[in-house]
Design a protein around this nucleic acid. Structure first.
Lengths: 219, 219
DNA sequence: CCAGTTACGAGATAGTGTGTATCATAACTG
DNA sequence: CAGTTATGATACACACTATCTCGTAACTGG
């Protein structure tokens, strides 16, 4: 058995990943063909398919390497519960590898890629959080935190002239991290009828609409 | 000039939209070809392109009709500031047209489609909100609210057996609507250094990491 | 109801990208 | 150094897109 991968394989894979990063910096993802990747990386077209099933698989690999690299750096901050520091670190990392992140987060990356990044980040955060998962809603909160951050980053990457890095980090911390951290210090409202009723009393108690009327399309 | 559209046009477009809804219920979006849409709708292949530039354009039209229909229904609740009612209405509407929403929100709908739905919802919410936009950050908050809700819905549509409609509505209200509504009653933290400093003092004041170290890919 | 306009169906066609197969050659590993 | 394995080059079948043409059917405005 060979524990060590063939040197040619690691070289080829790295060349393909680098070509993907380069191309993603100069055109939208949907305009990048396998042929172009092969040409740019000086790798044979047929060889591409010996390593990746399709373009998306390569992009997912690129995202995996990047995410792993970042999570390794931010891990100590997560353990220290330094939310603002973690947010700053995130924004700095994204800015340091701007073009590829614009493609991955703000560009039209396929569902496979996004799902992979999300899952990876969720697993890491889940492993670093204090309390064990206490219900089905905990997964949802975790999902909400990670994907909301990705959304804010997507907005930032499209409007980067408006907001600088540190401000963006603070926004992330104030609109996502701290509010959801506060949720844990409160009873899980959705499953507590008394709490929910108390909340409702605070708002304008509008008449509950019966339901939806006309369905536009048959289902 | 003809103010009224040709009857054949509305019939053809409706047939194409309905075919898209049907097909989206039985296979992933990327597996739906223009040929299949033409066949299912009993519309000629060439005729498809007389109405839509591509598959995405048709899907965007479908999303537009649905979103418009829903926003019309939820408008009174928005005016009454009934956040929980609006969230309930949203979940009910999504559930009433489940398959197409699974494709549009949780499935791999292209960037064009998602952007269209987002823009449409943002415009409506912006029109119905109390205060006029007071800064560049207001757009970001608006974006955050709408896209975070879409994210939560995407999660729900993939784990619908876990959480019922009313619970989901409450989650949306508690994790997105109310927290962001509360933000408006506080000074906009990110641009207020004093407030930010006060916040930081509350958290564990971790040493500020200098910056990111090794770049994996050249940029 | 009719004449002019317009949409539609059917079929052909060019172009592009994907994914697989084959075989000789070069490079790596142990 | 010998055996194994990755790679390069090329060819090919296939699917889908997007456009064009022409004859026919349907609709609109008067």
């Amino acid at each position: 058995m060979s524990m060590t991968a063939d040197a040619r394989v690691v070289r080829t894979r790295e060349a393909l990943r680098q070509a993907m990063v380069d191309l993603a910096a100069e055109r939208p993802l949907e305009a990048i063909t396998v042929r172009a990747i092969a040409e740019r990386s000086s790798v044979s077209y047929a060889t591409f398919f010996r390593h990746y099933a399709d373009k998306e698989a390569l992009l997912a690999d690129v995202a995996d390497v990047l995410t792993r690299d970042f999570l390794r750096q931010v891990a100590p901050l997560l353990r220290q519960r330094d939310r603002l520091g973690a947010a700053r670190s995130l924004c700095a990392y994204v800015e340091a590898h701007l073009p590829i992140h614009q493609a991955l987060i703000a560009g039209g990356a396929g569902e496979t890629v996004r799902a992979g990044m999300l899952r990876q980040a969720m697993e890491t955060v889940a492993g670093a959080r204090p309390t064990a998962p206490e219900g089905p809603l905990d997964d949802l909160v975790l999902f909400h935190v990670v994907s909301a951050i990705l959304n804010l980053l997507a907005w930032w990457l499209r409007n980067r002239e408006t907001v600088d890095r540190d401000t963006m980090a603070e926004i992330i911390e104030r609109t996502v991290l701290t509010p959801t951290a506060a949720l844990k210090r409160q009873p899980p409202a959705a499953l507590d009828p008394a709490q929910a009723a108390a909340d409702r009393a605070g708002a304008i108690d509008a008449p509950r609409r019966p339901n939806i009327a006309a369905a536009t399309y048959r289902s």
